[in-house]
């Protein structure tokens, strides 16, 4: 009998041993807890985005009736958003302002970084240090002065004054200089000079060497600085709210605040649609270039 019973239970033991793959139950418990914790963290990380995505396809504007998985999915909220609100202007303004600021600042910073990396001149060290120190002063702290400066400037050059996009770009350009120059200089230092030197022997000026040789080699860092800059400005609220007046001039950050009227009671649907459309561009960029952005951000932490 005993041998029979032993025979009949043996396969279960073998399956169990195979399933444990030579690990102790304690190891498997650890495994389980680890995965559970990660799943809890995933839920915490993802639920706001999932909730908004779900409710954006819901049939109602009200927050109270918003359901994570809508019963009758419709695109009504998107239709209302795109036809009845100034959202298309906000998106366009944001891309315009953040995009042109980022392009210009990448070029200006690359110029400065090249000079710091390649030339040895009197005042180089103090200039570098000064730039870093100036950057310690957050531009937002000068909001009053910036407001009054743009107000004054607008008296002479109306298209650069308050409530203009070029005015806001001008403000952002100043704020983007210091750190990015420093960051790019570090990368330029790693590009060997031999290529430029041989080009210069062939008669190229330092500027031509910069444009034709250094810039193409530095493309990865230029892209990272551009993207980080773009993402940061995309969410900038304080200065945009100080400079811009009037619904159609707003950037996304300032405009979305308008949906808050009535504490979302009647406009959650439109807001959810706006949140999805507003976030999708940044999400795509972020995940497409995840590794570069992450390494750039963790080195300096520019994004707020």
């Amino acid at each position: 009998m005993g041998s029979k019973a032993g025979r009949s239970f043996a396969p279960i033991g073998r399956i169990l041993r195979w399933g444990m793959r030579g690990r102790s139950p304690r190891w498997w418990m650890g495994r389980l807890v680890r995965n559970l914790l990660i799943w809890v963290a995933l839920a915490f990380a993802l639920f706001p985005a999932l909730f908004v995505l779900g409710t954006s396809f819901g049939p109602t504007q009200s927050l109270s009736a918003a359901r994570m998985i809508p019963l009758n999915p419709t695109t009504a909220n998107y239709y209302t958003l795109l036809t009845n609100t100034a959202f298309p202007y906000w998106l366009r303004n944001t891309i315009l302002v953040a995009g042109s600021t980022s392009i210009l600042s990448v070029f200006l910073c690359a110029l400065g970084a090249y000079a710091f990396s390649r030339f040895r001149f009197t005042g180089r060290r103090p200039a570098l240090l000064t730039m870093l120190l100036v950057q310690m002063f957050p531009q937002t702290l000068a909001m009053v002065a910036i407001y009054l400066l743009l107000f004054w400037l607008g008296g002479y050059i109306p298209w650069l004054g308050l409530n203009t996009h070029p005015g806001l770009i001008l403000v952002y350009l100043g704020g983007a200089m210091g750190f990015n120059t420093w960051f790019m200089k570090g990368y330029f230092d790693t590009i060997p000079r031999s290529l430029e030197e041989s080009a210069m022997v062939d008669g190229a000026s330092p500027f031509q060497a910069f444009v034709r040789i250094v810039l193409p080699l530095a493309r990865p860092i230029l892209a990272v600085v551009f993207i980080i800059q773009f993402i940061t400005l995309y969410s900038e609220y304080l200065l945009a709210s100080v400079v811009l007046r009037g619904e159609r001039m707003y950037t996304l950050a300032v405009g979305l605040h308008l949906f808050l009227g009535d504490q979302f009671r009647t406009r959650w649907g439109s807001f959810a649609a706006a949140a999805v459309l507003g976030a999708v561009l940044i999400l795509v960029i972020f995940y497409a270039l995840q590794n570069q952005i992450v390494s750039g951000l963790t080195r300096g932490g520019v994004k707020e």
Partner: peptide
């Protein structure tokens, strides 16, 4: 981190 902060805050 990948979502624009202004949008997340309002959510």
């Amino acid at each position: 981190y990948a979502l624009p902060a202004v949008i997340s805050i309002l959510i």
